[in-house]
Design a protein around this nucleic acid. Structure first.
Length: 563
RNA sequence: UGGGGAGUCGUCUAGUGGUAGGACAGCGGACUCUGGAUCCGCCGGCGGGGGUUCGAAUCCUCCCUCCCCAACCA
């Protein structure tokens, strides 16, 4: 869809709304809403929905409401209400003073139901849920009318009143719309509007023992709030005729429902039911486990609101069911963090390096830029001494081609410090494991510059042993393994047993000593790491790897191994 | 099988009768005190068959594939 004014293209939802404005519908007003049920934590799929709703309203100077669709007290909880509000705000959206609950409308909904009953368009049905199912027919066969379908209006009003008064047990009766039991659309086969549920509601307490269903609630709530465009996900497409039916029969303000495709992400699952299962069965530590695609999980992992917003923008909005490659989300995070994350040195798997010709007790301070992408980020001082840690992976006794790091006789640069050459290797006599490297440094290379201009390809990160701060580092992999066959394996079989690996004894530079939880850094040459907001403490730092850096060497060595 | 939706590079997504473009991924190169970043390049697609037209991803038609619906969940 090309926008003639800007030359940029817009998605079909925005195009429809633009058309409504052009034709003068709703006096050009745009009012949307995000209607989550508080029965779980929000994930990135929900973020697609609410960012769409909030953004579209904002683009037209309109408003977007937050409305909790709390019509099923059995599934809902205030814990979820709170987390949902926190997550929406975190992503940067604001519903102002328009916080609503479907339960706020229970009285109005009851009156509207009475209106339908009085017009002969709804009836109290005594069929059990099993019987209702049988009477409904199947996908290919029409249903049959309920024997209670033709009760008098007086009887319906009386029975409905008594349902509300609590005279009947759970499931004993329902209020149903009187539409068409032969409709090819199952949603129109006399759908249930109210069920009896003697259960406490997290907001209305025990005031009600009948609860309206989603279909009976949604359109009327939209109408009451003056919502112009009710944007929802595509599985509600064949509910739209029912949405429209209620509004038309009631003769009240009629918003327009528009459906778009939900978001799916490779390597994870975006279904509340399954996420809840992961939590309940202990496959993750909670809704905010850093491996979870929930907003609280992504936040804990180190994802930034900006990166998620950019991701959603790039993903677009359409009606095609699509699975987005997780690599795109990761790309958006790197892109954002590259701009804003302070650089820092941390050695994940330490190997001692002794610089033999460096004075024993000397400590030098080197200035290090906090972010080469952002001169305004300033610099910090790094202590250097005779014994430092480098990454174990940065040394190979017998290096392959194109390996630019440390090896016997090789010279590399210790970032910001000196050029050092590996002179010998110390090993554990019993195991043969390399325990220490003995090196010499070039005193003329202070700051890392070769005095004679000689080229040194390898630059390593390091931490001075005497100044290093120990830390735990958690690395994450996808929750789900790639689905090899054509979805032959079940969800549980695809769970990645190695989605979490914990590294202890990592050594980070001293400037991180009093870093605050939730802050994200780039560990030079390693990736972006966020201080865990739950488990990290001063003196016992815990970092989560949000995403690795692009690793060209990993690709080269993999290709070499393949030969 | 009835109804409702959807099919464009590996993955997303533009396109609305006039040269199929972009992003991510992949591959190659330049540059680099992060094998990062940046820059340049390459790769690769209209589900299929008919038809209309000077011309079709786009219009018509038949077919194929995938998703959703038979909760008193949302």
């Amino acid at each position: 869809m090309a926008d003639s004014e800007t030359g940029t293209s817009v998605d079909f939802v925005r195009a429809m709304i633009a058309e409504d404005i052009r034709t003068g519908k709703n006096d050009g007003r745009v009012h949307t809403r995000f209607p989550p049920e508080p029965n779980g934590y929000l994930h990135i799929g929900h973020a697609k929905a609410f960012s769409l709703n909030f953004s579209i309203a904002a683009e037209h100077g309109g408003l977007c409401n937050l409305r909790f669709d709390d019509t099923n007290p059995l599934a809902e909880d205030v814990e979820y209400v709170d987390s949902i509000m926190e997550d929406i705000r975190w992503l940067g959206y604001d519903w102002g003073d328009r916080l609503y609950y479907a339960s706020d409308y229970f009285d109005q909904l009851y009156e509207l139901a009475l209106q339908l009953i009085r017009e002969g368009k709804a009836f109290v049905c005594d069929l059990t849920s099993d019987e209702v199912r049988h009477y409904r027919g199947t996908i290919t066969e029409p249903g049959r009318n309920s024997p209670y379908r033709d009760r008098t209006i007086e009887e319906n009003v009386d029975l409905f009143d008594r349902m509300r008064a609590g005279e009947f047990d759970n499931g004993r009766r329902t209020l149903r719309a009187r539409i068409d039991m032969a409709s090819p659309n199952m949603n129109l086969r006399d759908p249930v509007m109210y069920r009896i549920l003697h259960a406490a509601h997290h907001r209305t307490g025990s005031k009600w023992c009948i609860y309206p269903t989603y279909d009976w609630t949604h359109g009327q709530s939209d109408s009451i709030e003056g919502v112009t465009h009710s944007i929802c996900s595509i599985e509600f497409e064949d509910h739209r005729p029912l949405y429209d039916w209620y509004l038309d029969e009631l003769g009240i303000y009629h918003p327009r429902q528009i459906e778009f495709a939900r978001l799916y992400l490779s390597g994870t699952v975006l279904s509340k039911r399954r996420l809840l299962q992961l939590v309940n069965e202990g496959h993750v530590t909670g809704w905010d486990d850093a491996r979870m695609p929930t907003l609280s999980g992504l936040r804990r992992r180190g994802y930034t609101p900006a990166s998620i917003r950019e991701f959603l923008k790039r993903v677009g909005v359409a009606k095609t069911e699509s699975v987005i490659d997780m690599a795109l989300l990761e790309h958006c995070l790197r892109e954002d963090l590259n701009r804003v994350a302070p650089r820092v040195m941390a050695v994940l798997k330490p190997l001692r390096v002794v610089i033999d010709n460096y004075p024993d007790d000397k400590v030098e301070m080197f200035s290090a830029a906090n972010n080469p992408e952002d001169p305004g980020a300033g610099s910090r001082e790094l202590p250097f001494s005779k014994v430092v840690y480098v990454e174990r992976d940065d040394f190979l006794e017998d290096p392959p081609r194109k390996f630019f790091r440390l090896a016997p006789g090789r010279e590399v640069r210790l970032k910001h410090a000196y050029l050092v050459t590996c002179e010998s290797v110390v090993k554990d006599e019993a195991t043969g494991e390399v325990t220490e490297l003995r090196c010499t440094y070039d005193p003329e290379s202070r700051g890392g510059e070769a005095p004679d201009g000689r080229k040194v390809r390898g630059t390593l990160h390091w931490v001075s042993v005497g100044h290093a701060v120990p830390a735990e580092v958690r690395l994450f992999d996808h929750l789900l393994l790639p689905d090899d066959g054509e979805g032959k394996k079940g969800f549980m079989e695809l769970l990645n047993p190695e989605s979490l690996s914990v590294l202890t004894g990592c050594m980070v530079e001293p400037s991180l000593c009093d870093a605050k939880p939730g802050r994200t850094y780039q560990f030079l040459r390693r990736g972006y790491f966020c201080i865990d907001s739950v488990d990290s403490q001063a003196g016992a730092l815990v970092f989560n790897r949000a995403v690795s850096l692009r690793d060209t060497w990993a690709r080269i060595s993999k290709a070499q191994a393949g030969k």
